[in-house]
């Protein structure tokens, strides 16, 4: 692929398409949000299928995908949500490395499962590094393509693909590792760190009930609705650092699940945090979908993540 010539011309931007990598770390102390892909698993698989390092930038597509014209023969992989991708009208396999010929058009249609799909191209999406990352954070207009969503007429360039990229064509994620995206999911949570700010039965309320994702949900966080998670009310919380997956609870008792574009600090106490290995399932939710929470320990969470990663590494090794 030639760096000097465009790889992709954006014919239609889709509903919410951004350039993302694994996030902008190292600058949270200055108030810079991490951003990055919502679903790390799907994005990582997409990159490995096309021979990229895990940190390479991909496109994150939301609910209604874009229409993209490829200006070069390119090896791509589409993972995550099934948004009915087609190349020149022919449907495309998900979770598989494919060659898209020069002049072809990649389009998306109806959303079947999940809400966020990932498109990796061999060599990665080449946009400038801003504070060490290519991730787009629209709220602060940082990174990606001008800090904003893709729109009609945008031109994307690719980085240099690995030499053996051609040999990856047809490679797929083994069946047993394919995630199952549902309209109702169970997410494991680690209680705390501010459990003291809530009434004793609040954690029980949270884990026994079902919460619904409301339309007031985006890459920053999902506002949930369900039984009230009651504060003690007597304690004043001093803002501190947030994390992806944290369930922060404003005084109205309706939890907010913080996601990739969250602010670095937050002024509401956090009753629990969703574990890393389950965050990809959270990333695939859409308004109206429901969540049950179940408690888990830190050690269990870290073991589950390592086991899951070992399975992925065995199936699709990381490229350096």
């Amino acid at each position: 692929m030639n760096r000097q010539s465009p790889c992709i011309i954006v014919v239609k931007g889709g509903w919410l398409t951004t350039v993302q990598d694994l996030g902008r770390y190292g600058y949270q102390q200055y108030g810079v949000a991490v951003a990055g892909v919502m679903d790390r698993f799907a994005a990582t698989v997409a990159n490995r299928l096309v021979g990229n390092p895990d940190q390479a930038a991909v496109l994150e597509l939301t609910l209604k995908g874009p229409e993209l014209q490829f200006e070069q023969n390119t090896i791509i992989a589409v993972t995550g949500a099934d948004l009915s991708p087609t190349i020149n009208g022919n449907s495309v396999s998900l979770w598989e490395s494919i060659l898209i010929p020069h002049g072809s058009r990649l389009s998306f249609g109806k959303q079947h499962t999940g809400s966020r799909a990932y498109l990796a191209i061999a060599g990665g999406i080449d946009v400038p590094l801003v504070l060490g990352s290519r991730s787009t954070h629209c709220v602060s207009e940082t990174g990606g393509l001008g800090g904003r969503l893709l729109q009609q007429g945008d031109i994307l360039y690719g980085g240099k693909p690995v030499k053996f990229a051609d040999s990856l064509i047809g490679k797929r994620l083994p069946e047993q590792l394919l995630p199952c995206y549902g309209r109702s999911v169970t997410l494991r949570i680690i209680p705390g760190p501010q459990q003291d700010f809530f009434l004793k039965n609040s954690l029980a309320t949270l884990t026994e009930a079902t919460y619904t994702v409301t339309p007031q949900s985006d890459r920053m966080g999902y506002r949930l609705t369900g039984p009230k998670v009651a504060h003690k009310g007597s304690l004043r919380f001093i803002s501190d650092c947030t994390t992806m997956g944290a369930l922060q609870v404003p005084p109205d008792g309706q939890p907010i699940l913080l996601m990739a574009d969250r602010q670095t600090t937050g002024g509401y106490p956090k009753i629990a945090v969703v574990i890393s290995v389950d965050l990809p399932l959270a990333a695939q939710l859409a308004p109206g979908y429901t969540i049950s929470f179940t408690p888990c320990t830190v050690a269990q969470a870290q073991t589950a993540l390592r086991q899951h990663r070992a399975q992925l590494d065995a199936a699709l090794p990381q490229h350096q």
Binding site: G26, Q29, I238, S239, D240, C241, T243, S276, L305
Partner: peptide
Amino acid sequence: DVVPTYRSVTVVFDPL
């Protein structure tokens, strides 16, 4: 990341 706030420090690490 090492993130100082008013009265706490959060250390963010790679759990792998």
